[in-house]
Design a protein around this nucleic acid. Structure first.
Lengths: 122, 122
DNA sequence: CCCCGTATTGATAATCACTATCAAGTAGCT
DNA sequence: AGCTACTTGATAGTGATTATCAATACGGGG
């Protein structure tokens, strides 16, 4: 655990739930001005492997989402881009996938797009 | 509808369900040798907007999937990378999302990862 | 069938995001 | 403090995508 990694982790923890590598670099550099971009990418890779962050599907640019532990899905606001977690989960039952497609599911990813509470209020 | 676009559409129709921009370029150029790479990207963008293709989540981001009309989801084989469509659909009910998160769903995307019939047989 | 305004094209350069490289620095154990 | 292995930062390199712009093709009206 180095100074640099701490700075990146801190930037993720304090910032918005979703972010790009470059945003992270800019933010973490405020506390750790000598931080290199390569280190940010290396740290992102480490976190991705440990499921602490997840690449955000559907977005055009390479974006990541800070994730809490455990199975969950994402609610993505089409209006403001915010990402919220939900533990509500739905997936086709394994038996049905097997029967209809001969497919054996191992995991799934579900993203729901819509309007968040804040944007609806506004 | 130009010669070039026809060539790209044909390349998508005849090829495997999932493809990258460069693969498409190579394939379409066999019928239309003067085709430019920029045109391929432009055509991809048009098709994406009309929901004829969809960027493939989970992959390293440069891949697209040919999609048939209508609501469906994707079964992605972790072993061979093939993509199959299914009309089996599951998503958290709108009422529950509203109640628990104040979130109004508009659409969703579900990808199931696992092992396809062929790979299981082998 | 030809003309013409408009949309499309291809080549090239420019811009990104990301990865590889490598010498120098640091963490963490002893 | 000393040692070793891992980490870092700067830079260059790679590959994908986008911007630019003059030349070209499309297709409706005459």
């Amino acid at each position: 655990m180095t100074r640099q990694r701490r700075a990146v982790l801190e930037a993720i923890r304090r910032g918005p739930r979703s972010f790009t590598a470059t945003e992270l670099y800019d933010r973490a550099r405020r506390r750790e001005p000598t931080l290199g971009l390569a280190t940010v990418y290396r740290t992102i890779e480490l976190l991705r492997r440990s499921d602490a962050i997840r690449p955000l599907a559907g977005s055009a640019r390479a974006e990541y989402v800070r994730c809490s532990a455990g199975h969950h899905h994402h609610l993505i606001c089409l209006s403001c881009g915010s990402v919220e977690e939900t533990d509500l989960c739905a997936a086709p039952p394994a038996a049905e996938l097997r029967r209809r497609h001969g497919f054996t599911p191992a995991s799934h990813e579900l993203d729901v797009f819509g309007t968040c509470a804040d944007c609806r209020a506004a």
